[in-house]
Amino acid sequence: MNDLNSTQWMSKQSNQQWFRKIASYLLLTFIAFLFIAPILFMIVGSLKPDELVLSQASTLKAFIPQQTSLQNYRDVFERVKFERFFFNSLFINSTIVLLGLIVNSLAGYAFARLRWRGRSLLLLIVIALMILPFEAIAVPLFFQFTFLGLRNTYTAQIVPFIANAFSIYLFYTFFADLPKELEEAARVDGASPFQTFVEIIVPVSKPVFATVAILTFLSEWRSFLWALMITIDEKVRPLPLAIATFQTLPPIQWGDIMSFGVMMVAPILVVFLLFQKWFVKGVASTGTKG
């Protein structure tokens, strides 16, 4: 280094930085390719004739559209009631998200801002329930709903998932951090806590509602285990179970399966790309709040 004069040293330095930058981008692009390769394979495959999907899977052509057509998509609609599964998933999930937002935000508010007997104990119980994964109650819940004669219904797929300990906790922490002065004026004017909540708190709490809505939707859109146990036929079958059964339905055609997959994930992918900021915030909040 001593032999170099300062300008040479500077240009060497910036060259090094430039190389580093290029190397970073190359590395990132390579990793990104590994990440999206399965997704690209699915999308491109869904547009190809089945023979091509099969024969090109071992080459880079698997990621290049050829002889594109929507035939596979037409096949899916001819072979199964895709629209029915789609409606089922959309209906079940939207209802859970909507009712969940109402019910859990109300509870979160009561815990965060109201003084009442039993508050601390119940809050402690809610927090403790957060560590109980759904898998730990799937079997007895299945027994409960079978006993009630509610197998193969929307009710069984919606009602158990409305109240959610983690959602209550997210609402609770958000409301607890709001400034106290917010409601004081309203309370002095004689507004009920419920009125105060609807008119003052909800309008300033959009971020937490968005976070909870997204996390709920994301986890329910993928629910497979419960659907497997509780549904019997196609009438109330949601998408994740439907694609698993479609996969085994002869004749097995990769192109059709891929079309099914694209149509199944498209809505959530669009929502993700539009509201990406909220997705990332929501996920990050599970780390800082959990």
């Binding site: 003084r115 009442w116 119940l122 329930l129 409960q144 109240a163 300990a165 806590p193």
Partner: peptide
């Protein structure tokens, strides 16, 4: 407050009791 708070928290707490604690 106690009365209102309980009515606000009741739907969620009932749900948690019936579909998490009870099972």
């Amino acid at each position: 407050d106690t009365r209102v708070a309980i009515s606000m928290a009741a739907p969620a707490l009932t749900g948690l009791f019936l579909f998490v604690v009870l099972p």
